[in-house]
């Protein structure tokens, strides 16, 4: 069983740096936002590193009373998660790098929660980021090429989000979580991530509910990561056909960042999508008490898709409780 219950894990603070297109979308208020994709640097890689550094800097500054950050857990989409490695290197804080593509942040939260629950650590900083143009360059075509895209394509969000997980009581509790298993449903289209990742989301949702003996209605909100609008349709249909579950209390973070007029095809993707929506929209609304986060990641590289291999996917789930 890969589900865990936590009694003593809380979220203390969060900080967001959002990209130029993101701040003109559905959520207009962020801690900081960028005017352009360079963020005052010479390359997009440096820009993304600076985004993560800004988040860590601000979190450390705002939480000066925290004696010690025990370690940082983070990951991003770049090869060998170099962005996070470079961003963290100057802080002299122990670092644990994680990669589950777009599920990296929730994976990090779950690992951090386990360390805190066990008493081994007191404060852990979790971080993730994605940068549209770094992702374009790595996974798709050269940035300036502008290849026409299919309607199923998702648009990698630009931003960096960090949070501090702690054992100090706060208004938001990490209640439980489930590590997902890798799913492979023979999908080969990297331009249709919704279809690739839905089975992983379904699998971890069902595991979570079964392990903790809960019903899907137990949660006020199920927030999936970046399935996009088409992925959401597939998810709902999949659950209805296979498990007879009707998903009413569901929002996909991929559909919550951009406006339809921003021409982002099927919605937003990237590891930053879910925390961006969670911390800047869902939790600010104060509408939901019990929230289940399901972040989904597509585990492919450009080489495996070029070699026509199927795309496996993974999802991890974390349950949050808003206390006040």
């Amino acid at each position: 069983m890969a589900s865990f219950k936590f009694n003593n894990v809380y979220i203390k603070d969060d900080f967001t740096v959002a990209g130029p297109l993101e701040k003109e979308g559905q959520i207009r208020k962020f801690d900081l936002s960028m005017d352009d994709y360079y963020y005052g640097e010479k390359t997009f890689i440096d820009a993304e590193i600076k985004m993560q550094r800004t988040v860590i800097d601000n979190l450390l500054y705002r939480n000066k009373n925290v004696k010690k950050i025990d370690f940082i857990i983070g990951g991003d989409l770049s090869n060998q998660i170099t962005i996070t490695n470079f961003a963290v290197k100057n802080f002299s804080i122990p670092f644990l790098g994680v990669y589950s593509a777009c599920a990296s942040f929730v994976e990090g939260m779950l690992i951090a929660s386990q360390f805190i629950e066990s008493g081994a650590s007191k404060n852990i900083l979790c971080i993730t980021s994605s940068h549209n143009l770094n992702a374009e360059r790595q996974f798709r075509f050269p940035i300036e090429y502008g290849a026409p895209k299919a309607k199923t394509t998702t648009f990698t969000a630009t931003g960096a989000v960090g949070t501090i997980i702690t054992n100090e009581v706060s208004s938001m509790r990490v209640e439980s979580g489930t590590f997902g298993t890798i799913q492979d449903y023979n999908q080969k289209d990297a331009a249709h991530m919704g279809a690739v990742m839905t089975p992983a989301a379904v699998s971890v949702l069902m595991d979570h509910l079964q392990d903790l003996k809960r019903n899907v209605d137990y949660y006020d909100l199920i927030l999936t990561g970046d399935l996009g609008s088409i992925g959401t349709d597939i998810l709902k249909e999949f659950l209805k056909i296979n498990y007879g579950v009707k998903l009413k209390n569901h929002i996909d973070a991929g559909c919550e960042i951009f406006l339809p007029s921003q021409d982002v095809y099927s919605g937003s993707s990237g590891p930053v999508t879910l925390p961006l929506v969670l911390f800047n929209k869902i939790l600010k609304n104060k509408k939901y008490k019990k929230i289940l986060l399901i972040a989904t990641g597509s585990l492919h590289s450009k080489d495996t898709t070029n070699q026509k291999k199927t795309i496996p996917s993974i999802a991890h789930a974390v349950s949050l409780e808003v206390l006040s």
Binding site: T152, N186, I230, I234
Partner: peptide, 9 residues
């Protein structure tokens, strides 16, 4: 699953 995906794409 492929049929489901194709139908909704």
């Amino acid at each position: 699953y492929k049929k489901l995906v194709d139908g909704l794409t």
